[in-house]
Write a protein that binds this DNA or RNA. Structure first.
Length: 942
RNA sequence: GCCGGGGUGGCGGAAUGGUAGACGCGGCGGUCUCAAACACCGUUGUGGGAGACUACAUGAGGGUUCGAGUCCCUCCCCCGGCACCA
């Protein structure tokens, strides 16, 4: 007789039975609505799961079980994100092959997930490293390539010297590798990109159609970074003729001559080299010289560059221009500008190139740059302004060049002050900005006013015929003129860059491309997919920018379709490619003929509820949306957005011991103390250590495993605690002691059920409506129906902590009613039968072991999972009487117990007759009485 | 700096503009016990009062309202993200 929750006596038994009954196999029964619940695709780490991981799996499991009980066909799958850097790094560290290592770790994850009874349909499981899966990752790559959305480019990329691979922008955080914290370097290596920038606008627009946390949407919008503005051309002029062109031609001529002199002994290679130099000489001559009748004549090639601005209204305040050091026109300027400027510019370019992102960001306060010797012409007023290069202008954004308006932009202002450049105010500042100073003072001494006036809430000045216009109107008119005179056009810029997908690493999905000798690229035909990742012993990455696969001859060397020799692409795809479509594969995971069957995807997609950590806001979640849109455009999936509702669970923080540094020890920036191991913490006296709440991780030594929790408290106690401890999206400070409370709660349910087992009537449904009701039976039913209603509402809105607390309230109420048990009649017996049966079903999603144990104990057959979620009757949820708050001037003075259907007039009258009310209205005149039926009466008197 | 999310008892947290602090943890007192644990009962925002009561309380200050934790404005603090994006 289970009088308390004794998990060791029944939990394992039920897990075994569920497994044998194949309880959680996905059903696609006609006539039932579908519900697709998905957890983020996890990488199975060697450390295994902590109670922190359970924090998204358990609530998700509650949702999935609840929906199934409500009559939905539920898809609740789990698989593993096996390919990628974390797995490979771990395997290298352990001197193992990633494949067998991942199998082992994945099996461990599954064992732990089973231990806490997550209702996954394991028959649909797969790993992204399964050839049957990555075959289709390659197939989708081909689709992207065919649409022009996958391309190879020799761009300068972020390179992590520790992981020895290129990284996507999204994987670089503050100039550091997101994974290992190493400062990234710039390297020019041919890389594969996906053209996500083509989808920038749609990725912004369609955020409006999904039910996601506002914070995540904002993060994505911010990352995509749309700005509206204008782009226009500026012509370059020089103050005097150029000397350096002749110098350059002279040296080229000398080089060619030197090669030519030794021609007789030249071999084929040298001839080729000389031909190359000749070709570039001719090109150089063509670009600078025009042949006349007898002589060569120097011609200044007309130079120009484009700038992008969002503040066209400030264009009359442009006093200089800045080019990024890498801007292509800089070389031309050096050739044509007076010779003395060329060398400092080239020195600065070298300096800028060698500076890491970290260094550059650290120096945002102190801007550097050099004058190029050239000038740009403002197309609106013909004013000549100096052209500088400076690394505060980024080559990768906009046109890599800006018009500088120091009067109204902090960065330009700082630069102008440092290098003594002119500042011209062109927006009339507000009185608050001017403070005690008159406008004339500001106009005469703009450099004394820092920060510059950046507001858009004013009118233009110093702008010729545009004076007096607002930001909006000025911008519009200037843009119209730009377009009318073909100087430029309105333009929308995005911060988003293309998605760098290739990795120079072994453990990833091979890219299905063959390079022919002549440099042509071919896709591997469908019937040759997958391109298998070769199984090799040694796969360590190298620092030379090539993939380990390039050293495997039997992989690299192939003959292409036309029988020519070719080389396979040896880079692999980053892990985010694999996780950009797994949610589609779960709809039809065993399909050998196609990545998925359209009917199956039409049935299950979109994912109704997607749950994981917020740290993937701009990586996985953006990439998966992009792939889905591409596949939608190809007619391969029926949805534009993959994830209808998104939820981010809070982190679980562990109580983590630290000590202060001892003599001679120093802390790294941001560190509060020295982390203690478990043993050290136990030994050290209390006054020498302190605790902080830190996210659970093996490296911090603060992990509580599900095994520990299940062992000490029980799987259901753990599950209920995970739900109850905090709101789903909030962070949690974990303490095992808290589980005492949920053990107590479950025990109270066991006690209640065993108390009433004798009098339990399984046939209560057929009698309950026919019996005479009593106050007690009515009360019991009210508690029951309210409990059912509240639990369902709370689960639906992801409020799992109140789902548990409202069920606790229900149990407490039943305990109160049970006190009067000796005087009960049949009416109460049926009510309590309904109560305990409903209670077991309502708690079943949270505590499935206990629910099935109690179900069986009551003599009911089968599993609670197969039972319908109990229905509530709204009429039974309301009481005959309600408590009304009586206020005088908004302050609570009394409460009244009145019939629900009391009239407003009667209520008002009774309220005014209260002694406590009279005490506060005595000597005052009642001005007004507000009656909110069922809630309160407020008497306004003075 | 910009963009999000927050700030309620000793703690985790409840609360469609309508009785602030539900529910739980912890604490205190009690019952049971030789004793302890478990369990159960009571109590637990702060100040004043023997008490009935009463005043004050949701980061600070204003405002709207019969009524504000909730809505509006200003400010402070914490967490997360972005960060020279023109």
């Amino acid at each position: 007789m289970p009088e308390r929750y004794d998990p060791s006596s029944f939990e394992a038994k039920w897990r075994k039975r569920w497994l044998e009954a194949d309880l959680f196999r996905t059903r696609e029964e006609p006539g039932r609505p579908k519900f697709y619940y998905l957890d983020f695709f996890p990488y199975p780490s060697g450390a295994g799961l902590s109670v922190g991981h359970c924090r998204n799996y358990v609530p998700g499991d509650v949702m999935a079980r609840f929906k199934f009980m409500q009559g939905f066909n539920v898809l609740h799958p789990m698989g593993f994100d096996a390919f990628g850097l974390p797995a490979e790094n771990e395997a290298i560290k352990r001197q193992r092959h990633p494949s067998e290592m991942i199998d082992q770790y994945g099996a461990n994850y599954k064992r732990q997930m089973d231990l806490v009874a997550i209702s996954y349909d394991w028959s649909r499981s797969f790993k992204s490293s399964d050839p049957t899966y990555y075959k289709w990752t390659q197939w989708i790559f081909k689709k992207l390539y065919e649409k022009g959305l996958a391309y190879r480019s020799n761009a300068e990329v972020n390179w992590c010297p520790k992981d020895k691979t290129a990284l996507a922008n999204e994987e670089v955080v503050g100039g550091l590798c997101e994974r290992c914290g190493t400062p990234v370097e710039k390297r020019a290596i041919p890389q594969w990109f996906f053209k996500i920038t083509d989808y920038a606008q749609r990725l912004i627009d369609d955020l409006d159609t999904v039910d996601w946390p506002e914070g995540i949407k904002a993060l994505q919008r911010n990352w995509i970074g749309r700005s509206e503005g204008a782009e226009f051309t500026m012509k370059i002029s020089f103050s005097s003729g150029s000397g350096s062109v002749q110098d350059e031609l002279q040296s080229l001529r000398e080089e060619v001559m030197a090669e030519g002199v030794t021609m007789p002994s030249a071999d084929a290679e040298r001839i080729q080299r000389i031909e190359g130099k000749l070709a570039s000489s001719i090109a150089a001559i063509d670009s600078y010289l025009v042949p006349s009748a007898s002589n060569l004549e120097v011609k200044s090639k007309p130079l120009s560059f484009k700038v992008f601005t969002t503040r066209l209204d400030t264009i009359f305040g442009m006093t200089f221009c800045v080019l990024a050091p890498e801007h292509p026109v800089v070389d031309e300027i050096c050739r044509q500008a007076p010779a003395e400027f060329a060398q400092p510019v080239r020195d600065y370019q070298v300096l800028a190139k060698n500076r890491t992102d970290m260094e550059r960001m650290a120096e945002t306060k102190d801007k550097t740059g050099v004058f190029t010797g050239a000038y740009a012409i403002n197309p609106f007023n013909g004013k000549r302004v100096p052209i500088w290069i400076a690394d505060y202008v980024l080559a990768t954004y906009g046109t890599g060049a800006i018009m500088a308006v120091p009067g109204h932009d902090q960065r330009d202002f700082d630069f102008a002050v440092k290098y003594g450049l002119e500042v011209i105010p062109v927006i009339k500042p507000s009185a608050e900005y001017l403070g005690e100073y008159p406008l004339e003072h500001y106009l005469a001494n703009p450099k004394a006013f820092n920060p510059p006036f950046e507001s858009k809430e004013s009118v233009m000045i110093n702008s010729g015929s545009f004076d007096g216009l607002s930001y909006q109107e000025g911008t519009r008119q200037l843009a119209e003129r730009l377009e009318a005179e073909s100087i430029g056009e309105r333009k929308i810029q995005y911060k988003l860059r293309d998605w760098l997908i290739s990795r120079q690493r072994y453990w990833g999905c091979p890219i299905p491309v063959i390079h022919s000798k002549d440099g042509e690229m071919q896709l591997v035909p469908d019937d040759c997919l997958p391109v298998y990742l070769p199984n090799v012993e040694s796969y360590e990455p190298s620092d030379d920018g090539s993939s380990p696969l390039s050293k495997i001859g039997e992989f690299v060397n192939v003959t292409d379709l036309d029988g020519r020799m070719g080389r396979r692409e040896t880079d692999t795809m980053g892990g985010f490619a694999c996780s950009s479509w797994y949610f589609l594969r779960f709809c039809d995971p065993h399909n050998e003929d196609e990545p998925w069957n359209m009917e199956r995807v039409k049935y299950w997609m979109p994912v109704d509820c997607y749950v994981g950590g917020a740290e993937h806001a701009v990586m996985h979640l953006l990439y998966a949306r992009f792939w889905t849109k591409v596949l939608y455009d190809l007619g391969l999936v029926p949805v534009k957005e993959p994830f209808q509702r998104l939820m981010n669970q809070g982190q679980v923080l562990g109580h983590t011991p630290y000590r202060h540094p001892r003599e001679g020890e120093t802390l790294n920036p941001g560190e509060e103390g020295i982390l203690l191991s478990h043993d050290e913490a136990a030994q050290l006296p209390d006054d020498q250590k302190f605790y902080r709440w830190v996210r659970m991780s093996k490296s911090k030594g603060n992990v509580v495993t599900p095994e520990e929790a299940v062992e000490g408290y029980g799987a259901d106690a753990l599950r209920v605690f995970e739900l109850f401890i905090a709101p789903f999206e909030g962070d949690v400070q974990w303490s095992n002691e808290g589980m005492n409370g949920t053990v107590r709660f479950l025990s109270r349910i066991f006690k209640l059920v065993s108390e009433f087992k004798e009098s339990f009537d399984p046939d209560w449904r057929n009698h309950i409506g026919l019996m005479d009701v009593t106050e007690t039976s009515k009360g019991i039913r009210r508690a029951t129906h309210r409990g059912i209603q509240k639990a369902g509402d709370d689960i639906e809105r992801f409020s799992f902590n109140t789902y548990i607390s409202s069920t606790m309230i229900w149990v407490n109420e039943l305990y109160d009613f049970a006190k009067s048990r000796p005087s009960w009649g049949q009416s109460e017996q049926f009510a309590i039968s309904e109560a305990i049966e409903s209670l077991i079903l309502v708690i079943a999603p949270a505590a499935p072991h206990s629910a099935d144990e109690l179900w069986e104990f009551l003599g009911k057959p089968g599993y609670t999972y197969y039972e319908s979620w109990p229905k509530f009757d709204p009429a039974l949820c309301v009481a005959d009487t309600v408590t009304i708050a009586v206020q005088v001037n908004g302050k609570l003075r009394d409460t009244l117990e009145v019939a629900v259907n009391i009239s407003d007039e009667d209520l008002e009258r009774i309220a005014q007759e209260c002694e406590k009310v009279k005490a506060h209205t005595d000597g005052k005149t009642v001005r007004k009485v507000i009656v909110i039926p069922g809630k309160l009466v407020n008497i306004v008197a003075n």
